[in-house]
Each structure stands twice: as C-alpha cells, then as structure tokens.
Write a protein that binds this DNA or RNA. Structure first.
Lengths: 340, 340
DNA sequence: TTGTACGCGTTATCAT
DNA sequence: ATGATAACGCGTACAA
C-alpha cells in the first residue's frame, strides 16, 4: 500500500494539515516544519493520490479531446499540439475516438459517467447538427468546438474560414490554367458542415472564374481516407471529358487521388493537378509533393486550450468564435513545370 | 450540481444501499424497488461519479499507453488498436507522449502522482537500459513492455522477433540481386534496443549471403522520421560506390529515403531498392508503394491488453514474453520489374 | 432483501 | 503558523 498523507503526518509528527500545505506548496510553513515533512515524504516514498484530491477539489486536471480517428494524420498532429498546449496550463489530455459513430459522439457530449472525468472537452465533431449540441445543454461541462460548423453563439469554437480556404485552393487551380476542376469530398447528407462549406468555396471559385459547376465532377467520400480518395479519383477519371485538376477536401483524399491518377497511367501535375487541405507532413514527402492549404494547427490548439481553460475557471465567459489563419502552400502537385 | 447517490435515494424513498445495488447491477433487488430507483435516476439525471467510485474501489478503469510520439503513424495505429482492445475489457486508454525525453520516461515509470491514475501501464520505451526498469521496482503498477528490448524475466513484454524481421527484409533485397545494401537507422549510443537488434539482423543477412558489412553503409538516424530518412539517404547516395538497396529500420525512414533518391535523379527500385519495417498505411499509397515488414499491430495490442488485464487482476502472474508474428510484404519499391 | 454507518485520501473550514 | 475535523460521493461490512 502506498503511503498516505496521514502516514507522513505521523512520521513527521505534525498534523495532516501541515503536510498538505507542504505538498501543495502553501506559502506559510516554517522552515523547520517543511524540512521535517519533506524528510518523511522522502522516507515513505509518499505520492499524493490524485483521485482523492479530485474528489475533494472537483478538478481532475484532465481535458478530453474527441476526434473521429487518431490515425488520421491531421488529428494526430492536432492531438500532439493540443497535448503540448495543455501541458503549459498543467492539464493532461485524454483522447477519445468516436470512429465515425454518431451515437458515440452523442454519448460523450451528453456526458456518460466517464465524461465526468474531464474538466473540459475539446470536441472535433463529424456531425454538427444543432440537435447534437442541444443535448449537451443539460451538462455543465465546459466545451470548445474544433473545426467547422455554423457558429450559434452557444459554444466556443475555433476553426479556419473553410469557405475561403476551399476557394483559395480552387483559385490556385484556376490560375494554373485548369478548366475542368473536379472535387472529392462532398457529402450526400446535409449533416456535416465541413463538406458543405468546402463545397461552397469550390463552387464560388468556379463561379468567379466564369466556369460551370458540373455536378458529375463533385464526388463524395465517406471518410476522407486515402482509400476513399483513390476510388473517387478512379471514377472521376472514367468521365469524359476527364478533369484536369482535382480539389480534395483533405490531404489524405489527395494522397489517394494521386495514386489513382498514376495507376491510370497519367501524371500529376501534367495531366491532372491535385491539391488538398490540411498540410500534413506526409504530403511534404509525397511524390510529387502535395500542394495544400495549411491550417496552423499549433495556433488552433493553443487557442482552443486557452478558451477551455478560461471557461473552466469562469463558466460564465461568453462564447467566442475564433477564426484560425490558413494559407495556400503550392508544391509540385500543382506546379506549372513538370516535376516527373 | 450533479445529483448524488443520496439524492436519488431520497427521491426514490429507499436507502443509498439499494440505489447503489441497482446502479452496479446487483442481482438481488426487488422489481418494485428497481423501477422506483430507475425512475428517480432518470428524473434527476443521475450519473455515478467515477472519481468517488475509484477512491473507494481503488480502480480507475484506465490504462496508460506511453509512446514516443503520437504523430508517428506506427504509434497512432498502435494506439488505435490498443484503444479498441482495451474497450473490450471495459478499459479506457490515456496516451502519454514522452517526446524522446528520457527524463519523462523515467518519471512515468517511477510513478509521478499522475501515473497513479492508471490501473496499468503499456510502455513503448525508447530507452531500454535495465536501470530504467529497475526504477520501476518500487512501484507496484502493473506494467507491460511493448516493442523490443532484452527480456529479463521481470516484466511482460510483447514484441516481434526484431533480428529475424530485419534479416527477412535484407534477405529479400539479396534475392533481388542487390549487392550493395545499405541501412538507415543504426544508433551511435548503445541505449536503444531496436536499432541494435535490427542492425544485428542486417549484418547476419549480409553475412549469410557472403557479403561484407561496409561500415560506411550503415547510417544513423536519430528519430526514425521522414526527415531523418531523407538526409541519411542523401548522404548515402554521395558515397561511391553508391548503394543499390537501402534497408530502413522504419517505414517513415523509408518514405524519406525514397524521396531523397528521386531528388538525386535516381529511381526506386531500378537504381535503389528500398524497404522499411512497420507496414503503415502511408506506405501502401506511396509511389512506388513501399515494401516492408508487417507487424500485426492488432495482435500486439490484443496480447498486451490481455496481459495487463490479467496482471491487474492477479499481480502475482509470472511475467511472460510474447513474440508477435511478422511477415514480409513485397511491393513496388523492391519489385524486379520497373514500376515507374 | 434492505438500511446504517464507516472509510477511501485529500482539501477546506474553523479554531487556536 | 499549525492542529483538529468535517466534507467530497461512493461501496460495502454489518446488522436487521
């Protein structure tokens, strides 16, 4: 059995109160007491029990980070940055995967008993229908939304301007002289905000360039995975006319799409230019390296953690919408000169 | 304030004992009582406080997973599988990043106060010097080691046969007819087990093939990252003679190495064949697709979680060494016919 | 089958 | 500055 505060108190011949003061770094402790206590702690190899502390203080020092899949590079990079940012505030992060499971999202949001472990929740939801958020109403768990969805004034929310980001990407393809610009990542359901906003940006850019929006060029992808990007691109290449550029709603989709282009005997960017969104490291080492829209994930993480921490300290803080910067990063997959 | 067990008891006009019985699924509760309690729970939106429960039972229902970096695909895929495996036993997983920080590894192993949150620890260490493990001795925290290190009989330990895996990879290059086979991933320090074992396999394969081990062909890599693979390969290509094959100690190194080969104006596999270890999804979509040694991560995760769970239930369980299967997966990066 | 009362290890309140 | 003691919310030994 590990030593308790009381054990230390007995050993040092002081009260538990004094030991607690020493442990929690309270100012007003006499030097003599402190050294006695410290010695006892050392001898007994005492370590504070975080569970008991939590029961008393009501704080766990843990944040929950909810993402669809930790294996998606964007989310693992986000997780890393959130973990780092949280550490600066003395918080630790527990990652929850929803695995594209709506029920799981709802459960976490409504607060199953495990959710109570967190002082706050950073939620990167797939589904952003307001009904989902309504469910969270009864819980008092501080909540910050990551990623796009319509801001309704109830919850803190940090994301990039998705419509603009998508538009920037497509305009880049237009400036390249491409005229048959396809998209991968639209969604048949109206449940998800990300695809809706990126579709809007895609169509707006085409419109501004005086191009038609061809419905057969806007293809769906269920999971923003490499495999989905591959099969979507494959079917796009069977169209005639073929697209001469593909805007993918995520880098992973783009990676899959590029592979499909090669397997069709064509090349990127000569035959088909490809661009994604996210700027994950994988794209920088791909062949050709992947053009993309970079999201400044460290910024997003810092802002999100900052918001949740202030909200934990003062639940009455008004909700805020934070727009993170994004910028186009042109690499080989959309370069004018051929890149082999 | 959330409702407590006592609130529910009052509302349902029964004792806390009965409520507790209902909540924890105790058998012998009369139907009438149960429905009354359930109704009260519903009305008050009661949720058991996991912290109080933990303080009482001594169990948190959480496992700690310690990895160097969550953004490394192998670790995020491992994390996903561990999370899934743990869920089947009713455990949740908290991921800890050590970020190549030895002190952090030591801290977690020795049990800082936060470590006490876990019922058990799955530890994928960089450093495997026995001294590190000695430190864990005083703690009673159940521990399972993931990944390679010498088995010393004290701790459960699940890993592949690293020497054999490396040997298989190199033999594959030999069978391809390559004769100047380099390696990326050796370590200058003797602190790490993985590079030592993979080096041993590399040298054994060369030896069996009657080839010399050229010291200048064995290059180091600090972090098994794409960037390190890139710069290591770059310097290898400056040697003369140039290597005609590179065995990388991880897929990420191999991804970086392939990119370096292309940037040098050479091609894979024609000029230089490349093979890695891990079988991460990224390699399957790379161009050319990456040959590798596949590790059966789900198996590793299942075994590790199974071990830790039995050890939690019975701390006296003797330590066991579990060797996970591996298999060579030949893809385009080592194919005999050119793959463009 | 159900009720009462105590303890898990800590922090906070009230004294001194 | 320090000591005694009451919570925090739950599980369970013991009693009924």
């Amino acid at each position: 059995m590990p030593a308790t505060l009381r054990d230390v108190a007995e050993r040092a011949e002081v009260s538990v109160r004094t030991v607690s003061n020493v442990v929690s770094g309270y100012e007003h402790v006499s030097k003599r007491m402190r050294t006695k206590v410290l010695a006892a702690i050392e001898e007994l190899d005492y370590r504070a029990n975080p569970v008991a502390r939590t029961l008393r203080t009501g704080r766990t020092g843990m944040l929950g980070l909810v993402v669809p899949e930790i294996t998606v590079p964007y989310f693992s990079e986000l997780a890393r940055d959130v973990i780092d940012a949280a550490a600066e505030y003395g918080y630790r992060v527990m990652i929850d995967q929803t695995g594209h499971d709506h029920d799981r999202e709802r459960q976490l949001l409504m607060g199953d008993d495990r959710t109570m472990l967190f002082d706050g929740l950073l939620f990167s939801p797939l589904v952003t229908k307001s009904e989902l958020l309504d469910m969270h109403g009864s819980t008092k768990m501080p909540l910050v939304l990551l990623g796009e969805h319509e801001f309704d004034g109830r919850y803190d929310h940090v994301a990039i301007d998705n419509v603009a980001a998508a538009k920037d990407a497509v305009e880049h393809l237009v400036q390249l002289g491409r005229s048959r610009i396809a998209a991968i990542g639209t969604q048949p359901l109206e449940e998800y905000a990300t695809p809706l906003q990126r579709s809007a940006g895609y169509e707006a850019a085409l419109h501004d360039a005086g191009m038609d929006v061809r419905p057969e060029f806007a293809t769906t992808a269920a999971h923003y995975s490499r495999a989905d990007g591959y099969s979507a691109a494959r079917s796009l290449l069977e169209r005639s006319p073929q697209p001469d550029a593909i805007f993918c709603f995520s880098d992973l989709l783009a990676i899959g799409a590029m592979r499909a282009v090669f397997d069709a005997g064509l090349s990127v960017p000569e035959d088909v230019a490809v661009i994604g969104i996210d700027d994950v490291e994988e794209g920088r080492f791909a062949r050709p390296s992947l053009s993309t829209v970079s999201l400044d994930t460290p910024y997003i993480a810092r802002e999100a953690v900052g918001r949740i921490v202030t909200r934990i300290d003062d639940p009455a803080t008004p909700a805020e919408e934070i727009v993170a910067p994004h910028r186009l990063v042109a690499r080989e997959s959309t370069s004018a000169s051929q890149s082999q």
